[in-house]
Amino acid sequence: MPPPLIVLRDVARIYGAGEAEVRALDGVNLTIRQGEFVAIMGPSGSGKSTAMNIIGCLDRPTAGQFLFQGIEVQGLDQDRRALLRRHCLGFVFQGFNLLARSSALENVELPLIYKGQPRALREARARAALEKVGLQGRESADPSQLSGGQQQRVAIARALAGDPMLILADEPTGNLDSHRSHEIMLLLQQLNREEGITIVMVTHEEDIAAYAGRLLVFTDGKLTRDSAQPERR
């Protein structure tokens, strides 16, 4: 059996030292398997964003072990973690984080440039990714010419283009109305089910978390709830 996609063992993330010490994460144990759709909830300051940053290889735990497919990430330097992000991860942010004044296609091509893929292949894959999120025909549009929902679709296409095992979504519907939110969540569900991509999503809305098959709740840096749930359609 292959190792689980993500394993956190006694992970702590501590900021500052001495009196000013803040334990953003404190002894978290967690296993996520390939193909899961996980929602992370919790009040602000509970450590959910810190957990996301660690799983996303943007940050490293102060103590404990973080294994990605059996690789110990806490020992990797910045460039090795960049390699992991490049080849295994995709990010979707609340604020979309698209490059302004670059077309949808150019935005989606971005991770492929760093993968060193030739231009023709890049363009084909970016077009395919945009088609998957239902944006065929809008390839040359600037982010400013797209609605919020469409911008988030571009961001999802960008995450998808790199052919990731894991998509990390940080409040992906935070800037969208309920109708668009529903569409985005259905898209993520579809990617999870049809492409087998593992999705870890941070949200503070329960009805958004309900689209996921597993719910984690963080309180004061600790994992306080971990339960399976039926996915909302």
């Binding site: 943007l58 460039d79 960049a82 390699l83 992000r85 080849h87 984080n97 760093y114």
Partner: peptide, 16 residues
């Protein structure tokens, strides 16, 4: 800065 953050997130190395 934000653009740099995006590039780093999608896998650009510091050298790139």
């Amino acid at each position: 800065t934000r653009e740099i953050g995006i590039r780093l997130a999608v896998g650009a190395s510091a050298g790139q």
